[in-house]
Amino acid sequence: MDQHLGMNRTGIDMSPVHSKQMLQVDAEIPQTTDGSSTRAGIENYFLENADPLGSVPLPGTVKGAAKSALKMTTGHHPEVFINKLGERLAYERSGVRVYQQLIAKCTHAADSLTPDLPLPIERLEEFCRQEEEHFDLLTQCLKKLGADPTAQTPDADASGVAASGMMKVITDPRTSVSQCLQAMLAIELADNAAWELLIKLAEDMGMKDMAEQFQHALQQEDIHLREVRDWYEKKCARPGENLAAELSMFC
């Protein structure tokens, strides 16, 4: 399922005669009509006139508003912190979903006769649970700050769009476990970097308890990253081998 030689017709070498004809361009075809429009012209217009990608919601509670105002006066930026907490919250929610999808794919692979053999399911389930714990942690942190954990912050929006391609790879029934692991690796790499940043922001805000809790989450994410990378590398090096038994030794 992973890789096989087949009738891939996407390359130009598939049709040497027609490709020569395709490259013969009729001199009469104008490369430009009036010359007044350029891509950059359109892009610049929209760049100059674009609205921002939403806004960070105002704290919904008096306590939260008071805290935010206090921090603003001391040079801190609670709106940046809330924006990033919201982003992390959305990302961890996606994390639960991608692990659920990967578990479904690996469970199916284990039941089928295809050579694309599965990863240790229990380990994936554990990672999935941890992603959910992180989601709960972030929900509590946002509530503590008087912010609304159900709001989509601007960075949550952008990061959701960025991750949507990864999600497509993992949910596509045609993709192999190895291809999914490549997407998982990108997800976990970004996840790790984002937790590191969040710890710095929490420390900067003077939220020591939160910083410590985030540190614990980062340690778990670090293990996710290491193992996903390891599975991916093994899958690429030895496609078709059952890694579940061997990898379960790590669990």
């Binding site: 490259l23 430009t32 009509t33 010359g35 007044s36 429009s37 350029t38 891509r39």
Partner: peptide, 14 residues
């Protein structure tokens, strides 16, 4: 200007 002009400008399939 015209978006199709902008996109087609200097474009040659390769």
């Amino acid at each position: 200007g015209s978006p199709s002009d902008a996109v087609a400008r200097n474009y040659r399939w390769q």
